[in-house]
Amino acid sequence: MNIQDMQKIWDIESNQTLYVLDEASVLNRINKKVISAERRANSTENFIIAINIFVTIVLFAIAILNDNLGTWEYLMAIFAALTIGFVLYYRKKRYEFQSQVGDKMLDNLNKAIHHATVQAKMTDLFLIWYIIGVGALTLSNMIIQNISIWLILPIAITMVIGFIVGRWEQRSIHEKKRDELIDLRTKLVEEVN
């Protein structure tokens, strides 16, 4: 069979209905899915923002009301405030990425690779920032206050486990996705001899 024969067979499909499409439910499903995906992403971010606003206000309030200029409270408050900034910046990037549809395949792949790289870096940064930042501040504060080692130890172990699980997720999801996209781009642009 040559390519022209294949083309003829292929053209048959263009002129006949191969599937039955429930068109009425398509739009309905799209509306639901777009709204629910948007809501899900926004609600997680809003939750993190709300918690960090609360933490920032409470920590600053405690420090000011008690006239207690403890480094720990101020550092944690600054840390929580910076996390809000991080989440808002991430949301902006997400919106920018979502609006890029209909590009050339190569441009689209480049953007997806860039997005996956940023996502991997952000997760890495957030992980180090949050676990090591919070962990170091919490543990150092506990040590300064002479809290029992039997209370410090489980908290330290939990933080280490959280860090390891987070790193694993980052490598197995974000970095894997980025590598797959790079592989696709290589296949697309490679010059074949």
């Binding site: 069979m1 294949m6 067979i9 292929w10 048959i12 499909e13 006949q16 209905t17 191969l18 599937y19 039955v20 499409l21 429930d22 439910s25 398509v26 499903r29 696709l184 296949k187 697309l188």
Partner: peptide, 30 residues
């Protein structure tokens, strides 16, 4: 019951399935 597309009842060209199968074996770019 929620499927948006359903398989056809009518028969297609016998070689069309083969063609689809061969294309699906290629890498995603090809």
């Amino acid at each position: 019951t929620e499927d948006l597309i359903k398989e056809p009842a009518e028969n297609t060209h016998p070689h069309l399935d083969w063609l689809y199968h061969e294309i699906s074996l290629l890498n995603k770019i090809d």
